Amino acid sequence: MLDIVFPSVSSILSITALGAAFGVILSYAKIKLHVERDPRLGYIVEALPGANCGACGFPGCSGYAMKILEGSAPINLCMVGGADAVEKISRIMDIKAEAQRPKIARVHCQGGGDVANNRFDYNGPRSCAAAQQIREGFKTCAYGCLGLADCMNACPFGAIHMSDTGLPVISRELCTGCGNCVAACPRNIISLVDSDFDVHVICRNTEKAPVMKKGCS
């Protein structure tokens, strides 16, 4: 027959007292360590587009909103939100600011696979950044697009697709001017220009024509 041992009254009281003490400590800590949250933070986050593309230079829309609230970032850095976001945040923060001119990404290369020559066969990872590390890229033209789609993969808005010749094609309708593709290109052949600016250079090669033609016909 099993002997059943019941806890003593003193043990029960000790555990109860210990639990009550911890409860008091936690309640005090909650009150003491509580940080008041500025309600404007939520309004600023709502005013931003929620793209979290990082083009403003901060980790997502909430990170940017926090910096605005702290006064350490201007309210017009969000290219995606544009004038609408600036107007809303201006009312929230009671700060006047003008929206930046809308931007669009442009590709300064026409050297697709149908006209550009390669110095060697590249069989590494499908990444422009990786290919650039191997003898500074496989293209004969040191300025030519490597065509491995780093820019397309970096675009959070689906504004870039690769053409049949391996060149990035940017949609004017979908491009927000966030600049992620600019940062992703290891050859610096993509730049941001004013969206209403129709004249742009389509080749970045600065070498003389005879040298240029060796790499791209």
Rank of each mutant, 00 (worst) to 15 (best):
M1L: 09
F6E: 14
I12R: 01
L13D: 10
L13P: 05
T16C: 09
T16G: 11
A17T: 15
G19L: 15
A20G: 09
A21E: 08
F22Q: 07
G23I: 06
V24S: 13
Y28C: 12
A29W: 06
K30S: 09
L33I: 03
L33A: 05
H34R: 15
V35D: 05
R37Q: 14
Y43W: 11
Y43T: 14
I44N: 12
A47W: 03
P49N: 01
A55C: 15
A55F: 00
C56F: 03
C56P: 00
F58C: 07
F58M: 06
C61W: 07
C61Q: 07
Y64E: 07
I68C: 15
L69W: 06
E70G: 06
E70T: 09
E70M: 12
S72A: 05
A73P: 12
I75G: 14
I75L: 15
N76M: 05
C78Y: 01
C78I: 00
M79N: 13
V80A: 03
G82R: 02
A83E: 14
A85C: 06
V86R: 04
V86Y: 00
E87H: 11
E87S: 13
S90A: 01
S90M: 01
S90D: 02
M93P: 01
D94M: 11
I95M: 04
K96T: 11
K96H: 12
A97K: 14
A99W: 00
P102N: 04
P102A: 04
K103T: 00
K103A: 00
A105D: 04
V107C: 01
V107E: 00
V107Y: 00
C109D: 05
C109H: 03
G111Q: 07
G112S: 05
G113F: 09
A116H: 04
N117Q: 12
Y122Q: 11
Y122T: 12
Y122E: 10
P125Q: 07
P125F: 07
A131E: 14
Q133G: 10
R135D: 10
F138Y: 15
T140A: 07
Y143I: 08
C145G: 06
C145S: 04
L146D: 09
L146I: 14
G147R: 10
G147C: 09
M152E: 14
M152N: 03
F157K: 08
G158P: 12
G158R: 04
G158I: 01
M162H: 07
M162K: 10
D164C: 06
D164Q: 13
G166M: 10
I170W: 00
S171I: 03
C175L: 04
C178P: 03
G179Y: 07
N180S: 09
A183F: 03
A184S: 12
P186N: 03
R187Q: 03
R187W: 02
N188I: 08
I190N: 08
S191F: 00
S191I: 03
S191L: 07
V193L: 02
V193R: 08
S195K: 06
D196T: 07
D196V: 00
D196M: 01
D198R: 14
V199T: 13
V199D: 11
H200S: 12
V201Y: 09
C203N: 09
C203R: 09
R204A: 14
R204S: 15
N205D: 10
A209I: 13
A209D: 10
P210Y: 01
K213E: 08
K213I: 10
K214W: 00
G215T: 05
G215K: 03
